[in-house]
Structure formats: structure tokens, C-alpha cells
């Protein structure tokens, strides 16, 4: 195999690959500078040698904070799930219910999206699929009141995990963000160390706007981790690298489909390898038989 030598063209291609993965201009620039420095330091000569170095740079960023889910010391663990419209919040809750049920935990769901048409029904179907009870009120009722009910139910029924669904909301809508803040306050007031986890669901197909989403949801609802969904498509979700760097928000879970078992704990190594496999910069082969 003829190994491609490192030259300007290689770095140009690498830049394209970084941009194509939604890593963004600033983080792409940062990674390019770092890798060029490393290449000089380690005296690398061929393009394929760049891949492990690049992956390590990415893993270092993604690993800076723990990707492990957080749990309550005692009593029910309360997980609040937030995000913009259509990213996969309700589905993720269904999958998490399945995950924890499989571990023998007692799970409860709270139908905190009282706004979107048939959102409650959607969660109820997930409850049936996973054999989990859903605390709910009617369409149009106060979301914080539903969550309040669910917190009491979780305590009285000695649930291990309470997963709270919320309506999709765009981060620039002040009144909807205020409603979310209220939900957060209710949880924090009822159970002092709760919510134990606030998960921001990000759709992997989302571009640079995900950074603004993470910033504002973190401010309002103290997001503690990210769920990156729809990684079963062709989108790479590279924007989470910038989010990790700028906002110190680790990814905790990934969604890889629409079925109940299409949820996995996040692995920085697997993520980096999916972004930049060894053959990411195609090596030019001088002679196909010359192996």
C-alpha cells in the first residue's frame, strides 16, 4: 500500500471532513492547528498516521467530563428531558424506560408535554410498550402541575427512576423557557437534590444552532448531559465537540433508531472512530496489486 504523504492537500481534505461532520469553523480551525503541531512534534509523515492523533484530540475533549449518568443517593432519581421540537425527547424517554426496566428498576414516566397534539398519547404508548406507568393530565393543563403529581407518585410508589417529558421549545422563546424554568423549580423544591439529571436532547442532523440550544437550555434548566439522537442516519453530530469545549456538557447517551432498544451509553472512542476511521483520508494507491 502506497501511503499518502502529508501535504497541504491532505490538510485541506481534513478540513473538509471536519466541516462536513458539523464540527464548525472555529473548532475545525482549533483541531487543524493542534494536529499540525502534533504532526511536527511527532514527525509524522503519512496521512494515515494523522487519524489516531485526531481521534485522540477529539476523545480528550469529549472525555473531559464524565459521560456516566447521575443517580440519586437515595429515593427516586429524577431525570428531566428537554430540547427543541422534534429532536426525539419522548422517544428517548421510552427507550430509557426500557433500559432501566431491563435492569429490574421501577420506572415512572411524567407526561409533561401538555401542549403538542397527541404528545400524551405518544408517551402512553411508550409506557405500554415498556410496561411502565405514565402520570398524566389532560392536553392543555399546566405542565409543572403534572410534574408535581409525578414527583409525589414517584415517592409514594417508591420508584427508582422518574423520567419527565417536556414539550419541545425553541430556545429563543422566552415564555416557553420561563415555563421550563418553573418546571425545574418545582422539581428542585420538592426533592432537594433533584433533578439528578437534566438531559438536553440534540438531533445529530442539527448544525451550529445546537451550540445556542445547549447554551440557553443550560442557563435555564441547568442541563447536566446530552442525548445525541438519530445517529443511525448519515449525520455525524460533530457539533457536540464544540459544545463540550465551550460549555463543558458531556454526552451521556446516543439514539440510533426508533425502537425501544435503540439507545446506548455514549462512548467517546466509538464516536471519534465513527467520525474518523483509519481510511478517512483515502490513501491513493499507486498500484492496486502493490500491497
Amino acid at each position: 500500500l502506497f501511503r499518502r504523504k502529508i501535504d497541504d492537500e491532505v490538510y485541506e481534505e481534513l478540513e473538509d471532513a471536519l466541516l462536513a461532520a458539523d464540527i464548525g469553523v472555529a473548532t475545525t480551525q482549533f483541531l487543524l492547528e493542534r494536529i499540525q503541531k502534533e504532526a511536527r512534534k511527532q514527525k509524522l509523515t503519512t496521512a494515515d498516521q494523522l487519524m489516531p492523533v485526531l481521534r485522540q484530540l477529539i476523545v480528550d475533549i469529549l472525555h473531559a467530563h464524565s459521560c456516566e449518568p447521575s443517580y440519586a443517593q437515595s429515593g427516586p432519581t429524577v431525570v428531566l428531558v428537554v430540547g427543541v421540537n422534534g429532536v426525539g425527547k419522548t422517544t428517548t424517554i421510552g427507550k430509557m424506560a426500557n433500559y432501566y426496566r431491563a435492569q429490574g428498576k421501577k420506572v415512572l414516566l411524567a407526561a409533561g408535554d401538555t401542549f403538542r397534539a397527541a404528545a400524551i398519547e405518544q408517551l402512553v404508548i411508550w409506557g405500554q410498550r415498556t410496561g411502565v406507568e405514565v402520570i398524566r393530565q389532560n392536553l392543555g393543563s399546566d405542565a409543572a402541575a403534572v410534574i408535581y403529581d409525578a414527583l409525589s407518585a414517584a415517592r409514594s410508589r417508591k420508584a427508582d427512576i422518574l423520567l419527565c417529558d417536556t414539550a419541545g421549545r425553541l430556545q429563543n422563546k422566552a415564555h416557553l423557557m420561563a415555563e421550563l424554568e418553573k418546571i425545574y423549580r418545582v422539581i428542585a423544591r420538592e426533592i432537594p437534590d433533584a433533578p439528578h439529571e437534566v438531559l438536553l436532547v440534540l438531533d445529530a442532523t442539527t448544525g451550529q444552532n445546537a451550540i445556542v440550544q445547549a447554551k440557553l437550555f443550560k442557563e435555564i434548566a441547568k442541563v447536566s448531559g446530552i442525548v445525541l439522537t438519530k445517529l443511525d442516519g448519515t449525520a455525524k453530530g460533530g457539533v457536540i465537540i464544540a459544545i463540550n469545549q465551550e460549555l463543558q456538557l458531556p454526552v451521556k447517551w446516543i439514539g440510533i433508531g426508533e425502537h425501544k432498544d435503540d439507545l446506548q451509553p455514549f462512548s467517546p472512542d466509538d464516536f471519534a472512530r465513527a467520525l474518523f476511521p483509519d481510511d478517512a483520508l483515502q490513501t491513493e494507491s499507486r498500484d492496486p496489486d502493490d500491497k
Binding site: 466541516l19 462536513a20 461532520a21 458539523d22 427543541v84 422534534g86 438531533d203 445529530a204 442532523t205 442539527t206 448544525g207 451550529q208 444552532n209 445546537a210 442516519g233 448519515t234 449525520a235 455525524k236 457539533v239
Partner: peptide, 12 residues
């Protein structure tokens, strides 16, 4: 198409 879509819009 979701207006927030990133680079993947080209594949889709």
C-alpha cells in the same frame, strides 16, 4: 426540512 439542519442536508 428542519431549518436547523446542518451539513447533512446535502445527503438528505
Amino acid at each position: 426540512v428542519d431549518a436547523m439542519t446542518g451539513q447533512d442536508a446535502v445527503n438528505v
